[in-house]
Each structure stands twice: as structure tokens, then as C-alpha cells.
């Protein structure tokens, strides 16, 4: 019955919202606002309901144990969680310097007419389908990284598909998101401040460093937004992470799993087990809560530090 209400009320709701736009505009618009808030609320509630069986059975232990053994109906997502943290850490360490480089290159180094082109290229990096990144990671990046790392330090990377590969691929994918926020802040540095920096005799590079310090809130905000992307990215990561959900590992040069790729890889056969679907919804709930928390922090930082 819940489902019936859900879908059958949705369509009249949208029609009513459009109708109200003509009759009483403000209330019509408010309905659209309510729609988006309700979607997020419903999403969280839905995951809580769907994940309830496993949380009732195991409590928080489902997030703290490492055994993922469907045959014994034992589900722990800790190794997926560790994988998410490790891949995100690798990705952020590589992406933040690149994002700063993009912001500085666009605003300081390139001549004015090349800025638009370069900016478009960065935006295109964000628009490219993630599955194409995955395809490239699978056949080009993975093998290349393996031979590169193994030349530097022999036999550290036994497989081309590891947490490290996923981290490098993620870094490429999330750089534009961090760069967009930093660029926005960088362009907002007031002209008098810039003039003051040059007036005391700073070189171009010193001026850049001072301006970056001036927009540090944007850099921090961009960091958290990109981190949110890195934690939630699914398809590309699932293709190159190695899909190892059996053995717990904290070595980035081994195959692993992340929370989102666990969902993508295990969901197709989840229906055959009693508690696997709830366990995967619990993982999704975890992703949702992370997403909410990280974005809240990012939005708070950016709004607090608005120039």
C-alpha cells in the first residue's frame, strides 16, 4: 500500500505544483522546494527500513566486522570501509595539488584567451562518463601503473587492479570538482588586496601563495566536496579495484573493495541470500550518512568563509 501511495501521489503532486504556479506562484514554488527535501528524507528513511533486518540482528557490528561470507550469512563491511578510506586518501593526496595547479594556471599563468579553452577541458573531465574512465583504467592505467611501480620497487604490485589503481583513477576524476570551487574563490580575491600584495614587492609566485592563503576556506570546501565524490564513486572504482571482498587488507598495493563497489558488485546475486540485501542497504545507508556529513561540512566552510 505504501508503494501505491508513493507513486500514485507523486504524479498528482507534480501536476498540483505546476497548477499552483499559475494560481499562487509562491506556494507552487514552495511545493518544488518541499519535493527535494522530501526526496532526501524519504531516501534516508527507506534505507533505514530496508537495512533494519541486519541491524536488528547484528547491531553496529555489521560496520565493525571484516568477514563477508554470504554462505554463512555473515556480513561485515569494515574492509569495504577501509578500502573507501584508503582509495580516497590516495585520490585526495594526488588531486588537491592538481586542483590548485588548475586554479593557478587558469587565473595567473595562461593568457586571457586560452583560459576559456583550458577551463572547458577541465569541465569536460568532470562530464566524461565514469564508465569510460573505468574502461581506460582497466586496459591502460592498471597495467601501466603495475609495470611502473614494479620497476621502482620490485613485486610490490602483484595485480594491475588494486586500491592504488582506483585511487589514481579517482584523483583524475575528482580534480575538476575541487578545482571548480578553488577557481571560484580565487577569482573573488578583491582587487585592492591583489594590488596591496604587489605593492609591497611580492613576486608573482609569492602573490599566488598569499592569495591561496586568502581563499583557504574555498580550498578546504573544495577538498571536502571532492572527498564526497571520491567516496561515492562507483563504476570506475569497481572496475579497477580488484573486487576482493574476502581478505581484509590495509595495503594499498593489493586488491580491495570499497563500499560503493561492494554494492555494485554484490547486488546482482544478493537476492539468493537472506540477509545480503539488508546488509547492502546498510552499506548504502553508511554512504548516505557520509555524503550528508561531508557535504554539510563543505557547505558550512564555504559559506562561512565567503569573501
Amino acid at each position: 500500500m505504501l508503494g501505491f501511495l508513493l507513486v500514485v501521489l507523486l504524479i498528482p503532486y507534480l501536476i498540483a505544483a505546476y497548477g499552483l504556479l499559475f494560481v499562487k506562484l509562491r506556494w507552487g514554488l514552495r511545493l518544488f522546494g518541499a519535493f527535494i527535501v522530501a526526496t532526501i528524507g524519504l531516501l534516508t528513511a527507506m534505507f533505514l527500513v530496508e537495512a533494519y533486518p541486519i541491524i536488528a540482528r547484528d547491531g553496529v557490528a555489521v560496520f565493525l566486522q571484516t568477514r563477508w561470507d554470504p554462505v554463512r550469512e555473515s556480513y561485515g563491511v569494515l574492509q569495504a570501509l577501509t578500502g573507501t578510506v584508503l582509495t580516497s586518501a590516495v585520490a585526495m593526496a594526488l588531486a588537491m595539488p592538481m586542483a590548485l595547479g588548475v586554479a593557478v594556471t587558469i587565473n595567473e599563468i595562461l593568457p586571457a584567451r586560452w583560459r576559456g579553452v583550458f577551463g572547458s577541458l577541465v569541465d569536460l573531465t568532470a562530464t566524461m562518463p565514469t564508465v569510460i574512465y573505468g574502461l581506460w583504467g582497466l586496459f591502460v592505467l592498471g597495467p601501466t601503473l603495475q609495470s611502473l611501480i614494479n620497476t621502482l620497487a620490485r613485486d610490490t604490485m602483484t595485480s594491475p587492479y588494486t586500491l592504488f589503481t582506483a585511487g589514481v583513477l579517482l584523483a583524475i576524476m575528482i580534480t575538476p570538482y575541487a578545482a571548480a570551487v578553488i577557481r571560484e574563490g580565487y577569482a573573488l580575491v578583491p582587487k585592492p588586496v591583489e594590488e596591496a600584495i604587489y605593492a609591497v614587492g611580492a613576486t608573482r609566485f609569492e602573490a599566488v601563495l598569499i592569495k591561496l592563503r586568502y581563499v583557504r576556506n574555498y580550498i578546504l570546501g573544495g577538498f571536502f566536496l571532492a572527498l564526497g565524490r571520491a567516496m561515492g564513486e562507483t563504476v570506475a572504482v569497481a572496475m579497477v579495484v580488484g573486487g576482493n571482498f574476502v581478505r581484509f587488507t590495509t595495503n594499498v598495493f593489493e586488491s580491495g573493495i570499497t563500499v560503493s563497489s561492494l554494492i555494485a558488485l554484490q547486488f546482482p546475486n544478493a537476492a539468493s541470500y537472506q540477509y545480503m540485501v539488508p546488509a547492502l542497504f546498510a552499506a548504502a545507508l553508511l554512504l548516505t550518512l557520509f555524503g550528508l556529513a561531508i557535504n554539510a561540512v563543505a557547505i558550512y566552510i564555504i559559506q562561512r568563509g565567503q569573501i
Binding site: F4, L43, G228, G232, E233
Partner: peptide, 26 residues
């Protein structure tokens, strides 16, 4: 702002959950 940064797989899972609830009555 939260929704634009949401993991896309979560959105898919949400629609799946709604669909599996709503399908029969619908």
C-alpha cells in the same frame, strides 16, 4: 547542494527500493 554531490549508486538503490515496493499495486 547535498543531492548534487550524492553518490549516484545511492540514487539508483533508492529508486530500486521504491520500485520494488510500488510495482505490484501500480
Amino acid at each position: 547542494n547535498v543531492l548534487v554531490e550524492f553518490p549516484t549508486i545511492v540514487v539508483g538503490l533508492f529508486v530500486y527500493a521504491v520500485m520494488s515496493l510500488a510495482k505490484e499495486n501500480l
